[in-house]
Structure formats: C-alpha cells, structure tokens
Design a protein around this nucleic acid. Structure first.
Ligand code: MN
Ligand code: MN
Ligand code: MN
Ligand code: MN
Lengths: 220, 220
DNA sequence: AAATATTTTTAGGTTTGTCTAAAAATATTT
DNA sequence: AAATATTTTTAGACAAACCTAAAAATATTT
C-alpha cells in the first residue's frame, strides 16, 4: 500500500482543517487549502477512502482514520524538522523555509527522520513556534495566547504566529519581534483595538489589532 | 519552461551513458539505466528533444544539448552534495545514501544548493569518491587508476569505486578499505589475476580480480 | 412549502509517464 | 544478397492528478 505525494498533501490539508473544529472536513474547505477544484478533491477523497485513510460519506465531508492521522502527523513532523534544519543549519530566514519544506517532507527513507531529529537536537518547536510531534506522534503543548487577548500590564515572550505569510514574518523581523522577543502590553486603544507595547530591549511601539491577533505570547 | 523529475532523471541517465563513450546514447542503454521499456524511452526522448534538452535523430541515439548538459550537471552536483550531507552530518554509511539522494536531488529552491555546499565546506568529492561539479559546472579532476592496473610494489590510497552497489561497499567496509585507506600491491597471481596487498595499518589480504577492477587508487 | 442559492458529485477530457504488442528500421549472419 | 536477428518506433491502453461543465444533493431564503 504505497502513498503518493498528492495523497500525503491531502491528508495534511484534512488534518489542518480538522484541527480547528472537530466537525468533518468539507470538500470546499479542502479545495481552498489545496488550491484545486472541488471536483479534483472529490476524486481524491474516493482514493483516500479506498485506502482507508479517511472515512468519507458523500456530501457529509471526511475525517482521518487512525492510519490517516498517523501519516499526516508524520508528515507534519518531517516538514517542521526540515524547517528547523533550513533555518538553524543553512541560515534561511523563517519566511523562506516553508516551500522548501513542502518538498523535503516527502523524502522517504529508513530512519531519515530519526537521524535528522537527532542531528537537530530533538527540537520541540519549528521556526514559526509550531510544535513538532515526536516519533510516536505526541505533541508538545505550550500555553500561549494571542497578544490581542492580553491585558494592560501583562508581559510575556513571543512564541508563535497565526499568520505564516512572508509579509507578516518579514514585518515582525523589521519590528524586532521574532520568536523569543520579550513584550509588555502597556495599553490597548479602544478606538481600533491597537496596542502599545514595550520590548525587553526597551523600545516602545504600536501594533495594529491585526498584528496582535496573529502574534502568540506566552505570559508569566 | 519547467522540467519534471522524470525528465531530470533521463537527462542524468543520458549524461552518465555519454560519459563512457562520446557516441550518442542509444534507446536500449537508456532503458537499461532507467529500468523502463524502450517504448517509454522513445516517448521521453521526443519530449526532451521538443524542449531542446537533447538532439535526437530517430534510430541514431541522442546527445545532450548545452542546456541539457547544464541541467544534468546541476542535478549530479545536488545529488552528491546531499550524499555528503547524509554521511557527514547524519551519519549514514556510504552504501545507504544513494536512494535518499535520488529524492533530495529534485528539491528546488532559491540558493538551496549554494547554502548546502557552504554548510558542508565546499566538498570536492562525494562519499564514493566521485567529483562534485562546482556552481559553474566545472569538475575537479583527480588521477586515479583501478587497482587492477597497478604493478607489484606500487602503493597509494583508495580514492574511489567503480561499482557503487551496497554489496561491494559493505564488503570494502568489512575489509577496512574505505576511501583514504593506504594500500601497497605486493604481488599479482597470474592464475586468476587476484592480488595480495598490504594496508597502511600493516594487514595483508588477497583481493579478487573483480574487486581490484572496481577499486580506484591514487598512486604516489 | 416553494423557490433560490450553494455545495458536492458526476461525466467527460487532458497531460505525464508508464506499459504491451505490433510494425518498421537497422545490423548481423549465412 | 537474402534471410534472420536485434533494436527502435508506433499504436493503443492505463493510472494518477488535475481540469470544465453539467447534474444532483443540500442549505437558505422567501
Ligand atoms: Mn511550513
Ligand atoms: Mn512551520
Ligand atoms: Mn549516488
Ligand atoms: Mn555518490
């Protein structure tokens, strides 16, 4: 029972949709993530159901089976480990690694992932702050909240992003707000929900509501 | 003008066949390397000719164009750099890396090769002793001869292999004759052309003619 | 409840890369 | 030079992964 790259990518898409709501993933949602037509998705869903990687009821959406979940998790693990490699070892910026990891995640070979993981020192989080599941598919949990939910006086550290776009990541770089940056919320302006913050290196700046919704902070 | 993985692999196969004789690469030779049928090869040759990556005359075989040669060389560069990565950084044995490199060589991205090359310290040879072309497609040259062509009394260092099979590489490991091993040819037995050698750590052993034909030595 | 809108599936087609079987071209032997 | 063998190409088919257009199912509005 061999699995193609396209099939792997669909499994990952379904996984990511299912993360946000435990309802079945719908055809249109999948087609949006995969940038294909709904007709192509239906084609693929039949194949994945045939291989018992999803449970599929016509018109009702799909859910990953045990096996489908296992494969999707393994793929995400590979993707994120490669992203760590590309940033830590090859010196790519955090906004440059996703497309490369999309290709590298499909490379298969005996113990490649395990060796890569060891070489990188068993990282628990990728360059975007996303958790890397371990070899058994277990996820590290870390309590973090959008900056948008913090109160004046709260302080913490940047631990992740919701928006993974290059535009957002580069903007954060420009502001000096990469992962690990220390932040204190000074005030929130009721007019537009923008916030004034102070960084640990004592710079003050104002961030839009949009930024504050896309930036995750671990408080305390 | 985009190029597929299959096309890249055919270009590499044609390159490798053309290395040994400067006559055109024939359909059957390509099908042997690619493990496909002659009919599939003919199909692909038409596509490659259409893209001006080969010059193709029906029934007469093919040759790479400038552009085809450039692409094949770049692919071999990537393949061998990844092989260095897998052995030097991830600790794979030299007989384990080829299949992984066959996949990794197709990963495309801005400056990935350049960064990988720098990370590895601009290696000139891969784990099998094969030269790695530089970014401009220039090959390092190294004078080496099959052990089978040396005379009694000659000594040198193992610098490469003709046979890349896992069986041969593992056998060499077992004998302690990896790349860099020092060797002196003591005598050749006329009966079967086997040879007695002494290693630099002062072990003596007899090698078959087959081994001596597949092992390259740099003398002096 | 009917009408309308949206979502999903089906039907039929395309491209890539493979195959087998048959035909055509080339090479070798007699 | 003919006959035979080998190599290569053509013809026709198939699976994977996509597409567009039309039909069917489901959801929403009136
Ligand atoms: Mn990514
Ligand atoms: Mn990531
Ligand atoms: Mn190799
Ligand atoms: Mn090699």
């Amino acid at each position: 029972m061999t699995i193609t790259q396209a099939e792997e990518n669909y499994l990952k898409a379904i996984f990511k949709i299912s993360e946000k709501s435990d309802k079945p993933a719908l055809t249109n949602a999948i087609s949006a993530v995969m940038q294909t037509t709904a007709a192509s998705v239906t084609d693929m869903l039949k194949r994945l159901a045939e291989k018992d990687l999803i449970s599929y009821e016509k018109y009702k959406g799909v859910q990953l089976t045990e096996e489908g979940n296992r494969l999707a998790t393994a793929l995400i693990r590979k993707h994120r480990l490669w992203e760590v490699f590309l940033t830590e070892k090859l010196g790519f910026a955090w906004d440059e690694v996703h497309e490369l990891a999309e290709q590298l995640e499909h490379v298969q070979g005996n113990d490649l992932v395990g060796r890569l993981d060891a070489f990188l020192g068993h990282p628990k989080f990728d360059p975007h702050g996303d958790p890397i599941p371990d070899a058994d598919g277990r996820w590290a949990y870390r309590k973090q909240s959008p900056l948008a939910t913090l109160q004046a006086g709260d302080h913490g550290v940047v631990t992740g992003v919701e928006d993974h776009s290059s535009a957002f990541l580069q903007y954060l770089d420009q502001l000096g707000l990469g992962l690990g940056a220390g932040i204190e919320l000074i005030e929130r302006f009721p007019y537009d929900q923008s916030v004034r913050i102070r960084t640990s290196d004592n710079r003050e700046m104002v961030l839009s509501e949009k930024v504050s919704q896309n930036l995750y902070i671990k408080t305390g």
